[in-house]
Structures are given as C-alpha cells and as structure tokens.
Amino acid sequence: KLPPGWEKRMFRSNGTVYYFNHITNASQFERPSG
C-alpha cells in the first residue's frame, strides 16, 4: 500500500508507470516508501 496521497499512474504515450501525490502535487518514478 502506498503512503497517504500517493497513487500509481501511467503515461498513455509510452506506458511508463509513475507515482503522483495529489496532496503535494509531487510526482516520481520511484515507488514512495512509507
């Protein structure tokens, strides 16, 4: 389970998975720990 605010997303163009935090508007490719 991801830390609060984080969700898994995917770029439609190339299928790359990334993680987005809707609380802080942060995004990263590494899976957030917590």
Rank of each mutant, 00 (worst) to 15 (best):
T24Y: 05
R9A: 04
P32D: 01
Q28K: 02
P32E: 01
M10T: 11
G15K: 05
E30I: 05
F20T: 05
S27W: 15
I23L: 10
N21T: 02
T24H: 06
Y18F: 07
H22T: 15
K8F: 05
H22G: 09
P32Q: 03
M10I: 15
T24A: 02
N21P: 02
E30F: 02
K8Q: 12
S27L: 14
F11I: 15
S13A: 08
M10N: 09
F11W: 09
N21Y: 03
P32W: 00
K8R: 12
Y19P: 06
G5W: 05
Y19K: 00
N14S: 14
F11E: 15
V17L: 06
G15H: 09
G5S: 02
G5D: 05
K1S: 14
W6G: 00
S33L: 13
S33F: 12
S33Y: 13
N14G: 09
V17Y: 12
W6R: 01
N14Y: 05
M10W: 13
Q28G: 03
F29T: 10
G5R: 01
E30R: 01
Y18P: 03
F20N: 00
I23R: 04
L2P: 15
I23A: 08
R31Q: 07
S13Q: 12
V17A: 08
W6I: 00
R9L: 08
P32R: 00
N21K: 00
S27Y: 13
F20R: 00
P4Q: 06
P3C: 08
R9G: 03
K8S: 06
L2Q: 01
R31P: 11
E30S: 01
T16P: 10
I23F: 13
S33K: 10
P3W: 03
H22Y: 15
P32V: 00
E7D: 04
R12T: 15
A26W: 05
K1E: 15
A26M: 14
F11T: 14
F20Y: 14
E7A: 08
Q28D: 00
H22V: 15
G34K: 09
V17P: 08
K8A: 11
A26Q: 15
S27E: 15
Y18R: 03
P32Y: 03
T16A: 12
R31F: 14
R9H: 10
I23E: 12
G34A: 12
